[in-house]
Every structure is written in C-alpha cells, then in structure tokens.
C-alpha cells in the first residue's frame, strides 16, 4: 500500500515543471510557418552548401598560398597522383556522411563502416607502395611542409562546417567537431594534391593521415565549445 503511494507520488508532475510545460505548450505552432519553413530549409541546405564552399575554400588556399606544382597537368595522369586524389575522396565521402548524421539526433555516427573504404585503401597504399619514393618525402622539409599546408587549407572549411552543424542539433559536440575536422582535413588533403610534390603512396598514407588527424583534433576541441546548445 505504502509502496503504491510512493510510486504514484513520483509520477506526480512537479508544479514548477507543470508551469514550464504550460508555457511551452502556449508556443505550439509558434515557430511561425514562414520562418519555420525557412529555418528548416536553411538547416537542410546549410550542410551541403557548407561542404561545397569548403571544397572551394580549400582549393583557394592551396592555389593562392602555396600554388599548384608546375608539372600538374602531366602528373594528373600518373597513378601516384590519382592514388592521392582517390584516397582523399574516399575519406571525404565517408566523413561527409558522418558529419550529416552528427547534426541530426538519433542517427549513427559510428565511424567504422563509413571510413572502411578509405582506411583499406590507405593501408594497401602503405603496405604495397610500388613507387619506391622515400617515406620522408622528396625534400628535407617535406613532412612539416605538407602537414602544415594541409592543416592550413582545412581551417576555413572546418569553421564553415562547424557553423553549419551548429544550425542542426548535434548531440555529441566533441564527436561532431572531430568529424567536421575529419571532413575538413580530407578536403584540405584533396586540395593539397595539386601542390604536393611528394608522390609516394606510403608518404600520403602516413603524413596526409597525420595532417587530417590534427585537423580532427582541432575540430574536437572547438566543437566542444562551439557545438553545445
């Protein structure tokens, strides 16, 4: 008997909460149709739009800050160049899917399956690199140059993507930030392929991946602050 009483008591609405519920219910339909529709549309549009501008901004940074390699047109037909491009495209594709899911509550952001193609591709490149190019790159400063350039090319994209995710409802701010960094980093890597003179598959697999990981870490740190609501 007493037990039943406590059970009912715990289900009683707290007057404070009851008050809140009434005030929230007063706003039913209160996201005015025009404004609500616009906001919903703009949230749906914000993500693909920011992804598109991210690609443009990454290429713009590489083109104007570093400049494309002179023999780019001849190189474009070699498998080493295409390896870089394809690896970054696979990574960006998987990350893009995860970024979209991160902005919508209840969708999976488990990275394993989405990133599997890119991971396998990079691992194969690392293990069976037939180019014979050194792991440390073509010049003494190749590693810091490449890593820094990719991070730099990724930063505008990262900020754009974070701003777009913020319009949604990210329920894991750190993870969503990291995924935004992953996407921005792979777009930065993609853009950097037009400037990078290091063509070894193993070089790309290690140092491009490191640069992308750095951008993902930056994204996680910023996301923790910027994406909470």
């Amino acid at each position: 008997m007493t037990q039943m009483k406590t059970a009912t008591a715990s289900n009683l609405i707290n007057p404070n909460t009851e008050d809140l519920i009434r005030r929230l219910a007063d706003e039913a339909g209160g996201a005015p149709i025009a404004q609500g529709l616009f906001e919903r549309l703009s949230f749906r549009l914000a993500l693909p739009l920011s992804m598109f501008i991210s690609v443009v901004s990454a290429f713009a940074v590489v083109t104007f800050v570093i400049g494309p390699r002179p023999e780019l047109i001849d190189m474009a037909l070699t498998w080493t160049f295409q390896f870089k491009v394809l690896a970054m495209l696979l990574l960006a594709g998987g990350a893009g899917l995860l970024v979209r899911n991160a902005a919508i509550p209840g969708l999976s952001t488990a990275p394993v399956r989405a990133l599997l193609p890119a991971t396998l591709f990079l691992l194969v490149g690392l293990a069976f690199d037939p180019s014979g190019f050194p792991l440390t790159g073509a010049r003494t400063m190749s590693i810091p140059n490449c890593v820094l350039a990719i991070v730099l090319a990724s930063l505008p994209a990262l900020l754009l993507l974070l701003a777009a995710i913020r319009r949604g409802a990210p329920t894991r701010p750190v993870g969503a930030g990291a995924l935004a960094g992953l996407l921005a980093g792979s777009l930065g890597g993609l853009a950097y392929t037009i400037a990078c003179i290091n063509d070894g598959a193993a070089f790309v697999a290690i140092w491009y991946t490191l640069a992308v990981a750095i951008v993902a870490a930056i994204g996680a740190v910023i996301g923790n602050r910027l994406l909470s609501w």
Partner: peptide, 12 residues
C-alpha cells in the same frame, strides 16, 4: 505534427 498545426492541447 499536431504542434506544427498549432494544436496546443495535444502538444501539452
């Protein structure tokens, strides 16, 4: 969905 149509009681 009813909330979007402004149906207060259902939402409450």
């Amino acid at each position: 969905c009813a909330e979007r149509r402004g149906e207060r009681p259902v939402y409450e």
